[in-house]
Simulated assay, not measured.
Amino acid sequence: MDFRLTEDQRALRDGMRQLLRARFDREALRDAVDDAAVGGGAAAVDGAAVGGGAAGQVDGHAEGAAFDIGLWRELGKAGLFALRAPQSAGGVGLGLPEAVLLFEEAGRALLPGPLVASHLAGSAGLVAGAEDGTAVVTAVEGTGCTGSCGGPTPPVAHLAAADAVLVLEEGHTVRVLSPGELAARPMRSLDPLTPLHRVRGPRESEAPGAWPARGTGREQAVDAAVLLREAVLLTAALQLGSACRTLEMAVGYARQREQFGRPIGAFQAVQHLCAGMLVRSETARSVVYAAAVTADEDETSAAKLLADAAAVGNARDCLQVHGGVGFTWEADVHLHLKRAWLRAEQWRTAVTAEERLASALLCPI
């Protein structure tokens, strides 16, 4: 299978990279992180109220969106959220391979915000305004149960900044709720640019994790399993972009930093670290690109598994190459590592992906 990009695909990828360089460069990233560090973008740990829109309320205090709303609108105008919507509906009319390329660039830049959910909502026409970035959409990843559950659902990102929430649970069609319909409490987030809420279910539900039965709420005629698979793949693309970026950071620093009168990249131990990072990145890239073409469930699980390992492993090795400076707040390495850790626990964890792949291997051909 030929995975070489077409001229149009390269132009699409380069256009996204240029947009992010102009609107979300390193200076903008660090400004956003500093704002979040002083409370501008992180949710308070206590409090239960959730508000919709670009400036929600948490415990009576305004919560920043943790991302640039102006940039969000520009991304919408550029077609990121309507990329796979048909042209007859005002979309771009492209496919998953092109979406993966753009999300890879977003991962390289550590672009914050509920990108995956807003893209799914915009491309499938689930939420008005999602396609052009005028509405912010996040998602609740279903737990696989429709009644009483033994524990809470996975954390939901950017809930206080959202205008709508997709409920994605296998075996159901997609449900669309407003943030105020959910019983949620903010929780401390590892990533300063990804505020999290723990959602226990709809407000009227007494059972943790109990979602409305089929036919209640604003239910859309879209199979949630399809959007779940796409969410897994797009998250893998974000992880791939982060893995490639930390590889570039490590190689660049190894060429610049000198010890004993030589660049540290001349030492074999550093070369081995960088070589391992390259192998992880390219292995993950081939599987992510293949899953984008085939849309196969098992290949998507493999893509997420390998992309998570590449993002986390490369960030750790990049920190090692940077040495002591890598542990400082001023270095960007920790931001990639924290985001990679967080994404690894979203949209199909390693345990879930391994179980799916093991089951596939045991099935007769």
Rank of each mutant, 00 (worst) to 15 (best):
D2R: 13
D2W: 00
E7G: 09
D8Y: 10
D8L: 14
L12N: 00
R13D: 02
L20F: 07
F24P: 01
R30G: 01
A32M: 07
D34K: 13
D35Q: 12
A42M: 14
A42V: 14
A43C: 05
A43Y: 04
A49R: 10
A55M: 11
A55V: 15
Q57N: 05
D59N: 13
G64I: 08
A65E: 02
W72H: 04
L75G: 05
A78G: 03
A85H: 12
G90K: 06
G93I: 05
L94M: 15
G95M: 08
L101Q: 02
L102N: 04
A106F: 07
A106Q: 12
A106N: 03
A109C: 10
G113F: 03
G113Q: 05
V116G: 09
H119N: 09
L120W: 00
G122P: 03
G125W: 05
E131F: 07
T134G: 06
V137L: 11
V140C: 12
V140P: 00
G142N: 01
T143R: 08
T143H: 13
G144V: 11
C145F: 09
L159R: 05
A160Q: 01
A160E: 11
L166Q: 04
V167K: 02
R175W: 05
E181Y: 08
A183N: 04
R185T: 12
P186T: 05
S189I: 08
D191S: 07
L193M: 09
L193T: 02
T194F: 06
R198L: 15
R198H: 07
V199C: 02
E204C: 15
A213W: 14
A213Y: 10
G215Y: 07
G215I: 06
T216K: 15
R218S: 09
A221K: 15
A221T: 06
A225V: 12
T235G: 15
R255S: 14
Q256M: 05
I264S: 06
A266S: 15
A275V: 14
L278P: 00
R280A: 06
V288G: 00
V293C: 11
V293H: 10
T300N: 03
A302V: 09
K304T: 02
D308G: 14
G313I: 05
R316K: 12
C318Q: 03
L319G: 11
G323V: 03
G326R: 05
W329H: 10
H334Q: 12
K338C: 10
R339Y: 06
A344I: 04
A344V: 04
E345L: 15
Q346P: 03
R348L: 11
T349I: 06
R356F: 03
